[in-house]
Design a binder for these strands. Structure first.
Lengths: 236, 236
DNA sequence: CGCTCTCTTGATAGACTTCAATGTTAGTGG
DNA sequence: CCACTAACATTGAAGTCTATCAAGAGAGCG
């Protein structure tokens, strides 16, 4: 899984593939809504998502919460802990998930030995940053409708890139409250915006399945331009 | 300057310091409000800020703008272009500034030869991401007053760490409209919040100089915890 | 079957924006 | 030294978006 993800970004030599395949990895199934790492922790391993959805978030005063990102199979949401020893936020499963844990030690050795792999992983954290910036645009300068539409487009692009979605349709295993916490909105308002998107025949959303009925219109409405995902040719 | 900044994060060997000092760097003075790199560009060099303030931003439809970050001397705002060839946003001076340009080629050679330096630079981009997350919290889950107060605390912490501010006082060379574009607010509302902060005797702001009159109160109000800046012991 | 979690809807309030006008400041050239 | 200009800051009034509060309806689960 990791080889496939990294290989989709840059060509890996046989030797590099070999080195990645040899990484010690402890695979563990986790229930939904289970913290993997918590703010303040000093993790000694990274987690590679093999199955399910994961999010990063922070809890604030008065029960408020901000979700920073959603992650899907192939992602390493806490890659930053390799170089920032103490976590400034938490990582938690969204759905039931399968996660592989790789010791920092092994990762550090890998990146020191293969600068090419280090560069790809570094790159991955930079794309992460690009997505944060795009979310900032959403919260700062887009309407709630645009922000939600944009997130739907983004998640589709990401899922489609790793072969987990086709035909503008995918499983969206997050509650409306989660969406609100991700975009800085109240759950009530999220609900109204979703209704609006449905009434405008842009999406359907039932049983946790999202279908984008009018991709062209939705991307136009939300000003979605996949460039910031830096996925190369697939992006179209 | 670069050695000092990087050396403040991790100990550099003599050899590493030597290698950094040998980097080819083209120093150029720039006027205020001058783009350094633009969205869509494929830069062949990075810029190291030697003097002045710089910001990263994106222009949107209808004249809207989102500022993603402010940068001060010692920062390399477009370090990401090393591994993400096409820019997804623009970089521009805020004030008159002095900037050093370093060819990607030289940087890539440096990081391939010295994995320790690569790790420090990587780390720097990760802190960048941490600041983005904190701004997301500000826009999503804090009031305008808290968000502005938080930004003031953050900039003080950053400036103080590189010796450019003391006594809770610093030059803040941004307009109220800039602040609004950074935090997702209208310039009018920024103005009102600033008045409120003044009336509560938390800050003074005149002639471009900001003074934080009550650090304890301002950090409490904005829930500012410098941990996310990952500055180590200095953070207190 | 009852319990809990999520979704849905209405009513009301508050935060923030927009529009528009005025005040302030620093710089420029006569 | 003063008129003139161009940014920037400040203020008021009106309007919009989104939050909060509250309550009911479904849906999944032991």
């Amino acid at each position: 899984m990791l080889i496939r993800k990294l290989g989709s970004i840059a060509r890996l030599s046989d030797e590099e593939q070999q080195a990645i395949a040899c990484l010690p990895i402890a695979v563990r199934p986790l229930p939904a809504a289970q913290d993997i790492v918590r703010e303040g922790d000093r993790p000694s391993q990274c987690c590679l998502i093999l199955d399910g959805w994961v999010c990063r978030y922070q809890l604030l005063g008065e029960g408020k919460r901000q979700i920073f990102s959603f992650h899907i199979p192939g992602d390493i949401p806490d890659l930053q802990s390799l170089h920032l020893p103490v976590m400034d936020h938490s990582v938690s499963t969204v759905t039931k998930a399968t996660v592989g844990f790789i010791p920092h030690e092994a990762m550090l050795e890998l990146t020191a030995t293969y600068p090419g792999i280090a560069a790809i992983l570094w790159r991955d954290t930079l794309v992460d940053g690009a997505i944060f910036r795009e979310w900032m645009v959403g919260m700062g300068r887009r309407t709630a409708t645009q922000a939600i539409a944009h997130l739907f487009c983004e998640m589709y692009a990401k899922l489609e890139a790793v072969g987990l979605a086709t035909n503008h349709r995918y499983k969206l295993p997050v509650t409306q409250a989660d969406l609100g916490d991700a975009l800085g909105l109240s759950n009530v308002h999220v609900n109204r915006v979703l209704r609006e998107l449905r009434e405008r025949n842009l999406i359907t959303l039932q049983g946790g399945w999202l279908e984008i009925l009018n991709w062209a219109e939705l991307t136009k409405l939300s000003e979605f331009d996949p460039m910031y995902l830096h996925m190369g040719r697939r992006a179209a």
